[in-house]
Design a protein around this nucleic acid. Structure first.
Lengths: 202, 202
DNA sequence: AATAATATCTACTAATTAGTAGCGGAATTT
DNA sequence: AAATTCCGCTACTAATTAGTAGATATTATT
């Protein structure tokens, strides 16, 4: 075995554990949220000790930032992999559907706008901001194109559509339906999409 | 001055300060959220010391519970004071409009579904649960009546409408619009209502 | 004016948790 | 096999903050 492959093997193991950490973080964030998630929680969930955790991420903020970046990257990848022929409105719908499924399967809300603490923290995370702006640029363009082509309401300011769209990815109605209704995930996704697009009125 | 009026005067002063405490709590909760709000914050905002604060509320959970109960009561009162002739859909719209205005004017999100901690805490607060169930009963009836009369989509499960309606009261789009768009509060309310009822599609 | 009663504050305790120092043991090299 | 390196862990520190004890001021009563 050459030195290179050995190093690369170590690196691979390291990367693998890093992913396990991010998975655990994502899941714990999804259930308890930022403030209640302790670094001990994460370490225990992965089966390592806290100092080992800090070998990978230099702080709690850093860890959560990376977990969110991975999520954003997932969204960007999802968009990139979509059939280019699709209409903007179809891309937006598919992306929202994907985001809702991620959440229903135990992931964290896509947009953790919920806590002021987390929001401030993220605003200071340049790496995160960069990714978000990239994704935002793409979505904003899709929204405007969809308005142009008459698939999204052209009379609404695109800001309103954009922020409302984002908000649907972290809509608490999802959790309430999951907890209190007998619907399965597919039905929840279907109804959330319909409400997002057409509202609740007849 | 009789003993009775003295006592009642003291009580009045006590009640007055209690309201000031709840006002401060509401405002701080609105800006920082539960986890970042400290009891010292509240005491300082009111201009009293922490032990005095604890003369009114026996714990942080209790304090926040009472603030939320006052908010729920506000909603119940608002509904009660509405013209009985209004159609259910009109009542629902007016209530949502009221809730959005409360928030835009520095109040806290109507439904603090955001934090798992807060939600769990409230679930253990019988007094709060009782009020919420009362309000929920009224809103649920309005939703079903509005579906019956064809003003709300009768094909959607009423659960979906109900939870989506609640979610609009704490929709983060409101804060984003307030922070990043040039709209005034009236426009924000108008657009949020439209999106809630008719969605974002054309 | 002296005393009693009450209200409010300063200064503490206790518990939680982010982050770290430094030890012990396994793998790797000579 | 001995020496060295490196990894992960136990056990700590420091900081924050909910909640309280007990001193202090203020008001009411005689």
């Amino acid at each position: 075995m050459s030195i290179f492959s050995k190093l690369s093997f170590k690196d691979q193991a390291f990367k693998l554990r890093e992913n396990a950490i991010l998975d655990a973080t994502t899941s714990i964030l999804g259930s308890k949220g930022y403030d209640l998630m302790t670094m001990d929680d994460v370490a225990n969930a992965v089966g390592i000790s806290k100092p080992s955790l800090y070998k990978h991420f230099k702080s709690k903020e850093d860890l959560v930032g990376e977990a969110l970046i991975r999520l954003i990257d997932g969204a960007v990848d999802f968009l990139a992999q979509l059939d280019g022929q699709l209409k903007p409105i179809e891309k937006l719908t598919d992306l929202l559907e994907w985001a809702l499924r991620v959440r229903l399967e135990g992931g964290m809300p896509f947009l953790p706008s919920t806590s002021a603490h987390v929001r401030d923290m993220l605003m200071r995370n340049l790496k995160y901001i960069t990714r978000v702006l990239k994704l935002n640029g793409q979505i904003e363009k899709l929204v405007k194109d969809a308005q142009q082509s008459g698939d999204l309401n052209p009379d609404l300011p695109s800001d309103v559509i954009l922020f409302s769209y984002y908000s649907r990815t972290c809509d608490p109605a999802v959790e309430y339906l999951q907890k209190f209704s007998k619907m399965d995930n597919e039905q929840i996704v279907k109804h959330m999409l319909q409400v997002c697009l057409s509202g609740i009125s007849a």
